[in-house]
Simulated assay, not measured.
Amino acid sequence: MTTALQPPLPSVPVLRLRLAPGGGMPRPIDGAWWPRSYDLISELPQLLAGLPSAWGHITSATVNGAEWSAVPGRMLVFNQVVRLRRSLTASAPHTIVLLAPGRGRWDLLVVPPDTSEAVAEPLMAAAVAGHA
């Protein structure tokens, strides 16, 4: 009898996200996210899946900057509708703002996807330490 080897299951890339410690004073940046591309349709589901359950259901995501690919007005993520917006505000060019009604707003620094690990890691650490 011959046994066929099963091909390995595709692995899901590790979410590159760091969140600031909870509690205390409000912060200008709540964490840092290092996506693998500027394609929000493919990147957002993994980000939302990695957020703490205490943040609740995210209903809106606003990305800041012209780098992001075109986004539809909304998308279905885990059977929930998420409104998508793109802003060109100069005040915070590399951020994503997540909203959950009744729970709050979270601003994440977005580290550009093409950033090297040697540069991205210190940026993310500084963001969660409050030095971004």
Rank of each mutant, 00 (worst) to 15 (best):
P28G: 08
S116G: 04
R18Q: 15
L108S: 13
P122N: 00
L9S: 15
H131F: 11
R83T: 08
G65M: 07
V63M: 06
L44Y: 09
G23T: 12
H131T: 13
A66C: 00
G73Q: 13
M25R: 14
A92H: 15
S37E: 10
A132T: 11
P122L: 02
A61S: 12
A127V: 09
Q6M: 13
N79G: 05
E67A: 15
F78S: 14
A61G: 03
D107M: 12
I41C: 03
A61W: 03
S87K: 09
L5I: 13
V111C: 02
P113A: 06
L17I: 05
P45E: 06
A100M: 07
V12T: 15
L9N: 06
L99I: 14
M1W: 09
A118K: 04
A125Y: 02
G102Q: 06
V71H: 03
I41G: 02
A70N: 12
P72F: 00
P10V: 11
E117H: 01
L123P: 01
A120C: 06
S87H: 08
V97N: 04
P101T: 09
A90D: 14
S87E: 13
V14L: 12
P7S: 11
S69F: 06
W55C: 03
L99W: 06
P52R: 07
G104R: 12
A49M: 03
I58S: 08
W33V: 08
A61Y: 02
E117K: 01
F78L: 07
H94I: 00
M25Y: 02
V111E: 02
L51N: 07
D39I: 00
S87Q: 10
P72H: 01
G22Q: 14
T59F: 05
T115Q: 00
L48C: 07
G22N: 10
A129E: 14
A66N: 04
P122H: 01
G104L: 10
H131M: 12
A32D: 08
A20M: 10
Q80R: 15
P122R: 00
A129G: 13
G73W: 07
A20Y: 12
